[in-house]
C-alpha cells in the first residue's frame, strides 16, 4: 500500500488547469455555478453522488461504532476482555457456542473473550490512527510543500533531499525495525512496561511513524503547484504591494490548493487504516490486550477452517471501511476536478 506518496500522480491531474479562482471555463454561462467557489460546486456535486452518500454512510456507521463501543458492548451485556473460559471446550479449545443473543459475534477460541466487544473496541484504534495521522500528515505536508515551493533555494533543496531520502527507505522494513526501538526509548531505565502501557506507546508511535512518512506525497504535490502559482499575477501583485509572506502563502496561494489537499487527505485515511491493520497483523502494531482488527485477523487465520466467525467481522469491516473511504475520496476528487463532467 502506498502511504500517500503514490497519490501524487493521480492528484496532479486535478490542478493541471490551474487556477480555480478564475471562472470555471466550461461552467461559464450556467446560472447554477456562476459566481460560486470551487468548494461549493464540489459540495453540490457530492450531494448528488449516490456512491459518495453510501460511502459516507458506511464511514459514519463505523465512526459511531467506535464512539459508542462501550455503550454497544454494554447493550450486549458484556465487558471487554472478560475471559469466558466456561464457553470453551477443553477438548479442542474452540467455543462451544456460536453467535447468540449474549455473544453477538460468538466468543474467541481459546480465551473465550466476547468477539463483538473485541470488534467494537477494535474500530477505535483503526479510526483514531487513520484520521489523526491523516490530519497531521496533511498539515505537515502542506506547510513543508508551501515553504519549499514558495521560498525555493536552500529551503527547497533541503526539503527536496529529505523527501528523496524518505522515499528511498523501504517503509515496512523501517517500521518493523523502528517500533520496538522507539518503544524502548520511552521505557524508563530499569523499569518495565505493562502490556497496557506498551500498547499505549505503540499507539502514538504508529501515528508518529505514519505522519513521518505520510507527508511526502502531499508536500511534493503542493510544492509543484506553488511553483506555478507564485509566478501568477495575483501573487506577484500581492508581493508588489508588500503583503507579508505568511499572508501570501495562507491567504493567496493556499485557497487555490484546497481541492488536492482534501483529496489527498481523504485517500490517506484508508491507507493509514490499512497500515495500522497490517502492522498489528505483523506484530509491530498494538499489543494484547488492546483490541485491533489487524491482530484479530492474525489470530483468526489459523482457526478459519474450524471457526470462520472469528475472522469474518474484522476482515469485512476493514474491507468495507477502506473501500468506503477510498470511494469517498474518489468522489471528492471527482467533485473537485474541473475536468470531470457528468
Amino acid at each position: 500500500m502506498s502511504l500517500g506518496q503514490g497519490t501524487s500522480s493521480e492528484l496532479a491531474s486535478l490542478t493541471v488547469d490551474g487556477d480555480p479562482t478564475e471562472p470555471d471555463g466550461s461552467a461559464e454561462g450556467t446560472d447554477r455555478q456562476h459566481g460560486r467557489s470551487p468548494s461549493q460546486i464540489a459540495w453540490d456535486r457530492l450531494k448528488g453522488d449516490k456512491i459518495a452518500i453510501i460511502s459516507f454512510g458506511t464511514v459514519v456507521f463505523f465512526v459511531l461504532v467506535a464512539v459508542f463501543a462501550p455503550l454497544l458492548v454494554k447493550l450486549e451485556g458484556e465487558v471487554l476482555n472478560q475471559y469466558h473460559s466456561d464457553l470453551i471446550s477443553a477438548l479442542n479449545t474452540y467455543p462451544i457456542i456460536g453467535a447468540n443473543t449474549e455473544h453477538w459475534f460468538g466468543v474467541e477460541p481459546r480465551t473465550g473473550r466476547d468477539l463483538f466487544a473485541v470488534w467494537a473496541y477494535g474500530a477505535r484504534p483503526s479510526l483514531i490512527i487513520g484520521f489523526t495521522a491523516a490530519t497531521l500528515s496533511t498539515i505537515v505536508g502542506i506547510t513543508l510543500g508551501l515553504l519549499a515551493g514558495y521560498l525555493g533555494g536552500k529551503v527547497d533543496k533541503v526539503i527536496g533531499w529529505t523527501i528523496d531520502l524518505l522515499l528511498s527507505l523501504p517503509l515496512l522494513v523501517v517500521v518493523l525495525a523502528v517500533v520496538p526501538v522507539i518503544q524502548q526509548r520511552f521505557t524508563p531505565v530499569g523499569e518495565t512496561l505493562t502490556a497496557e502501557q506498551k500498547s499505549g506507546i505503540r499507539f502514538y508511535v504508529l501515528i508518529a511513524i505514519l505522519v513521518f512518512f505520510g507527508w511526502i506525497g502531499l508536500a511534493r504535490l503542493i510544492r509543484g503547484e506553488v511553483f506555478s502559482l507564485r509566478e501568477r499575477e495575483f501573487v506577484q501583485a500581492a508581493k508588489v504591494i508588500g503583503v507579508k509572506t505568511r499572508h501570501i502563502l495562507f491567504k493567496e496561494i493556499l485557497p487555490n490548493l484546497v481541492g488536492p489537499i482534501i483529496v489527498s487527505a481523504s485517500i490517506a485515511v484508508p491507507a493509514y487504516i490499512t497500515y495500522e491493520a497490517t502492522l498489528s497483523y505483523l506484530g509491530a502494531g498494538l499489543v494484547e490486550p488492546t483490541p485491533s482488527w489487524g491482530r484479530t485477523v492474525s489470530n483468526a487465520q489459523n482457526a478459519y477452517a474450524r471457526y470462520p466467525l472469528f475472522l469474518w467481522p474484522p476482515v469485512l469491516s476493514i474491507a468495507s471501511l477502506v473501500l468506503a473511504l477510498t470511494m469517498l475520496g474518489e468522489a471528492i476528487r471527482d467533485a473537485f476536478d474541473p475536468n470531470t463532467r457528468r
Binding site: N81, Y83, S85, R110, T111, A195, V287, E288, P289, R295, S298, N299, N302
Partner: peptide
C-alpha cells in the same frame, strides 16, 4: 501468534 500474550492476560 499472540498465544503467549493471551495466556499471560488470562
Amino acid at each position: 501468534s499472540n498465544v503467549a500474550q493471551q495466556v499471560n492476560q488470562v
